[in-house]
Design a protein around this nucleic acid. Structure first.
Lengths: 247, 247
DNA sequence: ATGTTTATATATGTATTACATAAATAATTA
DNA sequence: TAATTATTTATGTAATACATATATAAACAT
């Protein structure tokens, strides 16, 4: 489980990604994980051609993908350098996905959860105000999916992610919709960090149903409040896990 | 004024962008503006090579940039198709910049402002709670910049943008910091839509100073509230402008 | 000895040609 | 008529050559 689940959720799991994409992922993962440090010059095109046994065209394509995500900076005569993290396109789906495989970082997950706390309660409110019947049905389907549990931890997390995605979509704002990656990344990293079976939080599923009910009842105020509560509970459990980790 | 100011703010204004970037911008602008419609097949590589008088390598690089932003979908044997807007990487800086030059769209600016309303008040609160002295100084400098007005509308807008950016940075969350583009895009489009001199809103500048003061006083509650008020006022003025537009 | 200019090495940028491969369409055959 | 097989179209990859920006080293003049 991990990055692969992320790509599943994004339906971006092509059977055989093109060669430049494969190389870009390989390099991207290493950069995000910190294996290749910021400011470092990576191998030149000739060496990479050798290492990955592909033509220069493929290498250059791969590098260009990472330049687009702000991970690399290419300058002729000099080479290709890893950009400082502050300049990465953090909202990018691949960058978010690669973080799932990176070494656990408490500060990072805190930032993700803060962002969720900023957006999702508002999204719930807007969903209550303007969700279409289809969007409502999608949210409820996700709740049902969580309730069934479906046997595996992985499937439970996917159902959880689908719930939050459905709420974002119901809010009918393209920028919110485009934020689903933050949720996937946060959920997947949380599970790894706490190292707990999320299904054991007995209250969690009913919390989700309550949010759905508030949205279905078009009670924006309540939907916002409950979503905030739901997220703060998740954050609390994360902090508890950190505390245990230390000891 | 327009897209160029956006790039100024992002400090991305290279004197001479590489040829692939030039071609990508040309195509990107047209797609975002809707000149090239969704689902359309764009010209094939040979034709584009002809039109722009560059090699196939350059065309392919340009196309690949737009693929990275979700604007194009390339499939061999078929050609290159404009993806539906729902799949664009709306958070991308270039995509946001190109929207500034696109035909005015009320629904779009509403979405941008809703997003600002979701995260900026929270950002102000966090800024009040954790801003460093340097970050505080940056915010105040921006307020002073607005107060001086500096003669031109353009410079005033830039000062305004710098204020909101400084607040985001002060909140010390990398994902917030990476959202500055939304603010630039929203400000630039707003000015075009209302077609008013923003300096004429006499209350606006003092509102900004009030927000700064709350942050400096570490009063998160107040900072959040004032920012919400400031944004709602901006939204109200936008709606008034729309009303006048109709008549 | 120091500062400036000039050559050279290095690495990416662009152009060109050739061929591979996926997808759609047309032609052929059972 | 349906299934199969060419053929066409357009992108994917490879290889080579040369252009150009940058840094480093060498030569030179003061």
């Amino acid at each position: 489980m991990s990055e692969l689940v992320y790509y599943d959720l994004k339906r971006a799991a092509t059977m055989t990604p093109s060669m430049p994409i494969q190389v870009a992922r390989e390099l991207g993962r290493r950069i995000v994980a910190g294996t290749i440090e910021e400011g470092t010059l990576i191998d030149d095109e000739a060496s990479l051609t050798e290492r990955y046994q592909v033509s220069r065209v493929v290498i250059r394509d791969a590098v260009k993908i990472l330049v687009g995500k702000g991970l690399l900076d290419v300058r002729r005569g000099i080479g290709t350098r890893v950009k400082p993290r502050s300049q990465w396109v953090l909202w990018d789906d691949d960058v978010l996905a690669w973080h799932v495989n990176a070494p656990p970082n408490q500060d990072y997950i805190n930032q993700l959860m803060d962002i969720r706390l900023a957006f999702e309660p508002k999204a719930s409110r807007w969903a209550a105000e303007r969700a279409t019947p289809e969007a409502l049905a999608e949210i409820e389907a996700a709740v049902v999916g969580m309730e069934l549990e479906q046997g595996s931890v992985e499937k439970f997390i996917i159902a959880d992610a689908l719930f939050h995605r459905a709420v974002l979509r119901a809010a009918r704002n393209d920028y919110l919709t485009a934020m689903e990656g933050v949720i996937y990344s946060a959920l997947l990293i949380s599970v790894q960090l706490t190292n707990q079976d999320p299904r054991k939080n007995s209250s969690s599923v009913s919390f989700h149903r309550d949010v759905y009910q508030a949205i279905a009842d078009k009670d924006g105020e309540l939907a916002e409040k409950l979503t905030k509560k739901l997220l703060k509970d998740a954050i609390r459990r994360l902090h508890e896990a950190f505390a245990n980790r230390e000891s």
